[in-house]
Design a protein around this nucleic acid. Structure first.
Length: 184
DNA sequence: TACAAGATTGTCT
DNA sequence: GACAATCTTGTAG
C-alpha cells in the first residue's frame, strides 16, 4: 500500500476519518465535466455496532460495497429518489463508512447549476451533493484513488472550528455525536 | 406476498 | 410546518 495522504487518512478508525475528511477536496470527472467541492459536513456510521447504519443487519445487495475495502465509494438510493455517497472505511467486511453530507463547491459551478437546475443550495445536503457532482448508482463501488471520483488533500479547515453534533435524519442511535461540521 | 419505514428534497400552505 | 415522490429492505402473515 502506497503511503499517500489518503492512505494515511484511511488508516484511522471511522470517526477519525469522518473528522479528518473535513477540509478535503472531492473531485468528480463525470460526463466529460469536472466539478470539485471542499467537504464541510460528514457523518460516521459504525457498521454492526450502529443500529442506524445500513450495515447493521449485515450485507445485502444494496450495501455490498460498504463491506469492501477502505477507499471505495458506497452510493445508495435514498427514499427511492436521491443518491447519497459514503466513503468506505476500515478493514473489508467491517461495514464502516462515512456519509458525505455537504460541501462548498470550488470548481465547475456552472456544471453543478445545470445538474441541479437551480442556482442556490447546490451542495448543502447529501442528495444535493451527489446530484451536483453527477454521482449516481453507477459509481457505487468505484475506487476514490482512481476515479471518476477522487479524494484529494484540500485547503483544510483554515483555522475554522469543527463541531460535533448528533446525526441528522435518523431515528436510531441519535445519542451519538457522530456528525462533523465545519463552522463558519 | 403485502406493507411500513427510511442516512432526503422540493413545493405548497 | 406538513406532505408527496419513489425504491430497497425487513418483518409479518
Amino acid at each position: 500500500m502506497r503511503n499517500t495522504p489518503l492512505e494515511r487518512l484511511l488508516a484511522g478508525d471511522v470517526f477519525a476519518v469522518a473528522e479528518g475528511l473535513i477540509g478535503w477536496t472531492l473531485r468528480s470527472n463525470v460526463d466529460g465535466a469536472t466539478t470539485a467541492v471542499t467537504i464541510t459536513e460528514t457523518e460516521a456510521y459504525a457498521g454492526s455496532d450502529d443500529p442506524a447504519s445500513h450495515a447493521y443487519r449485515g450485507r445485502t445487495r444494496r450495501n455490498a460495497s460498504m463491506f469492501g475495502r477502505a477507499g471505495l465509494l458506497y452510493v445508495y438510493r435514498s427514499y427511492g429518489i436521491h443518491w447519497c455517497m459514503n466513503v468506505v472505511v476500515g478493514e473489508a467486511g467491517l461495514g464502516h463508512a462515512v456519509l458525505l453530507r455537504g460541501g462548498e463547491i470550488t470548481e465547475g459551478v456552472a456544471v453543478a447549476v445545470a445538474r441541479r437546475g437551480r442556482h442556490d443550495h447546490l451542495t448543502d445536503g447529501p442528495g444535493k451533493l451527489c446530484q451536483a457532482l453527477g454521482v449516481t448508482g453507477s459509481h457505487d463501488g468505484s475506487d476514490l484513488r482512481s476515479g471518476p471520483l477522487l479524494l484529494e488533500p484540500g485547503p483544510g479547515v483554515g483555522g475554522r472550528r469543527i463541531e460535533t453534533t448528533p446525526r441528522i435524519g435518523i431515528s436510531k442511535a441519535r445519542e451519538h455525536r457522530w456528525r462533523f461540521v465545519l463552522v463558519g
